[in-house]
Design a protein around this nucleic acid. Structure first.
Length: 106
DNA sequence: TGCTTGACGAGCG
DNA sequence: TCGCTCGCCAAGC
């Protein structure tokens, strides 16, 4: 495990329940604002989905990741809805209401 | 050992 | 405003 991926996992674990964030913020928090692609790869190789809620990480516009490997976007959406995340009519996450960008507004 | 790929994001034309 | 390209990182072949 490398420092970058460690930070990625740490940031994801800090996402409050019922909140979501995007790859760009995770990359920024991990120390590489432009490494969003690397974040996606690290989360794709996530070996501990229980402690690392990668389903709380979505696209910048709130879209779910089509490559979600733990059941698909449909399962990812169910997990988020179960945590209280609000969805828009077009199927995207309401980032304005549930977006988390390091703010301690738990 | 080096190139390519993959759950993305931002900048520029 | 839309589309293309580059940047980043790690793993697989």
């Amino acid at each position: 495990m490398n420092d970058f991926s460690e930070r990625v996992f740490q940031v994801v674990r800090e996402i409050p329940r019922g909140k979501v964030t995007n790859y760009g913020f995770v990359a920024f928090a991990a120390g590489n604002p432009r490494a969003s692609r690397g974040v996606g790869f690290v989360l794709h190789r996530n070996t501990d989905p229980v402690n690392t809620p990668c389903h709380r990480v979505v696209f910048k516009d709130g879209s779910l990741c089509k490559g979600y490997v733990f059941g698909g976007p449909d399962v990812q959406r169910e997990k988020l809805e179960a945590e209280g995340v609000q969805f828009l009519p077009d199927g995207r996450v309401d980032m304005k209401a549930c977006g988390w960008f390091g703010e301690n507004e738990e």
